[in-house]
Amino acid sequence: MQGGSSGIGYGLKYQARCISDVKADTDHTSFITGTLSLKEENEVHLIRLSSDGTELVCEGLFSHPNEIWDLSSCPFDQRIFSTVYSTGESYGAAIWQIPELYGELNSPQLEKITTLDSHVGKIKSIIWWPSGRHDKLISIDEQYISLWSLDFSKKAAQVQSQESAGLVAQSGGAWDPHDMNAVAVTCESSIQFWDLRTMKKTNSIEHAHVRNVDYNPKKTHILMTAEDESGIRIWDLRKPKVPIQELAGHTHWTWAVRCNPEYDELILSSGTDSTVNLWFTSASSNNESMSESLVESPTRRSDPLLHSYSDYEDSIYGLAWSSREPWIFASLSYDGRVVVESVKPFLSRK
């Protein structure tokens, strides 16, 4: 594996925006992705990396009634996932279950466990608690943040609490993996932090144009954001005024940012300039002894950008690390191409 085009490709039929790691699948490295086509029949693809790591195999292909704007896999059941979809005029969200006998690939129907309606505005994203079994879900629409309690046996979901954030145009968010009561929500001019017990805002980072946000899975209080103009910033929530570190990001917008689930110094970002950048940063781990870090190097201060994957044709909106093999990540460009790459060659170099 050397050079830029070391990745393993997989083509979707239509354009697509979202890809998610199937975290609950502990036997295989799998990803789930859905297409975004206004006029064609949309599909959900379950993709698996073959055991020798040289091929991407389509493990399941299901039709989905509407174009998919957001998709995330349930962290404790590999057959369950959520989608946010649009019919062109209205938006909706649902929880789906992959049918048990999907071995024969003749486009079986997905079982819809439940839809999450009772939304007022455009729903933007559905979040599962990332660190384990938790029967709650969060949905974020433009104005409201809602906490759902999920009952798989009755196949029902109920709004447990709902609160309006005001007219701030919420666009997405992330659930704190260290605290199941804390959620970060990205709004037009700030990032707001909610306590789910009281459904009140607890904190905020006043910072405009945040596209994407991700918690550091290993260290509490550390958060990274991707922004249109200013690249990537890393924040310590105890000091929300100024970021701890800033990374250059991308030539155009930085769309998504993901912290590696195991080695939290590794940060991946994708942008509308058709590149995926791999960063190495020690700032998020400087409150711990350096000896624990993955890569020991005297030149760590030099350039945080380890590598730029540029073998893409279109903007990259979907990005996911594999939690089973944390040196592997999947990226999805708008033209529907999934590329799975390993970051190993760029680690050994340092």
């Binding site: 649009s86 155009h252 917008w253």
Partner: peptide, 15 residues
């Protein structure tokens, strides 16, 4: 160029 690219991205988010 950057502005046109942004324009394209904004368009892609709409129906």
């Amino acid at each position: 160029k950057l502005c046109l690219k942004s324009l394209q991205e904004f368009v892609r988010l709409q129906t």
